[in-house]
């Protein structure tokens, strides 16, 4: 027992100085499910921010846009250009809301996680962070993308959509089927890994040297967060465009 006691005390000590919590969640029991409450709370805040800014932008629409309206119109133009370049001139219209939702939610989540001092609010368990540093959020977003591109393919080409699985040669059928599983997998893990890694690096650096040293890494984190949001939205648009276009 004495032998065991020492490492635990050591552990306790290291825990105190690091304060980095990985795999700690604040659970809510909803029905038969345990949900990660900290993710839901930050998601709601992100959603509230997005809805609030959208409401602010359309509250008093003007011919020559000003302030928030100007900014959000610029963002919308950006998303529309992204969707147009990836999906194509004819069909990008109906997919702008989906791509825009993906991009804005991920981007605002990432930046909120990187810029807002969530540590101020103490939870019974775990800590508040970007919703995208939980694998459940990113998997949900990636599965939505999968559903979206299947839906796009079926509505555009009907059962002929399955023809794309034997497109270059029938030999590639297994690989093409496998692609449908790897796409959401890679999407979700890329986003999750990047954001979690960024937050962990910042947290570890803060625990080691609290002042100044984490700042460059935090800027790097901001950059990565933006890039990841852009990558996710671009890839989602590219998958949708590819499934409607019909060849690789």
């Amino acid at each position: 027992m004495d032998i065991l006691q020492f490492p635990i005390n050591m552990l306790n000590y290291f825990y105190e100085i690091s304060g980095v919590e990985v795999g700690q969640h604040f659970y809510w029991q909803i029905g038969g499910f345990q949900v990660h409450a900290q993710v839901l709370i930050t998601s709601w805040i992100v959603i509230a921010v997005l809805l609030g800014s959208a409401t602010l932008a359309v509250r008093d629409p003007q011919i020559i846009p000003n302030g928030a309206q100007n900014f959000l119109e610029y963002v919308l133009e950006f998303v529309r250009d992204l969707a147009r370049t990836q999906i194509g001139e004819e069909e990008y219209g109906p997919w702008v809301p989906f791509i825009g939702t993906m991009f804005l939610f991920i981007f605002v989540s990432n930046w909120a996680g990187a810029l807002f001092p969530w540590g101020i609010i103490k939870l019974p368990h775990g800590e508040l962070a970007a919703p995208t540093n939980d694998i459940n959020t990113t998997v949900a977003l990636a599965l939505l993308t999968s559903v979206a591109y299947f839906y796009a393919g079926f509505t555009k080409r009907g059962l002929g959509y399955f023809g794309k699985y034997i497109q270059p040669t029938p030999i590639l059928l297994p690989i093409n089927i496998l692609e449908d599983f790897t796409k959401p997998l890679s999407l979700s893990f890329r986003l999750f890994g990047n954001i979690l890694a960024d937050e962990l690096v910042v947290a570890v650096l803060v625990s080691l040297v609290p002042i100044v040293v984490p700042i460059p890494v935090m800027f790097l984190g901001l950059f990565t967060s933006g890039i990841q949001a852009l990558i996710f939205a671009t890839l989602a648009a590219a998958y949708i465009g590819e499934s409607m276009e019909g060849h690789h």
Partner: peptide
Amino acid sequence: FGLNTNILETNIINLSVV
């Protein structure tokens, strides 16, 4: 639930600089 007032732990200085 509660407020964490530890300045170093909440990383407020770095965040405000950023």
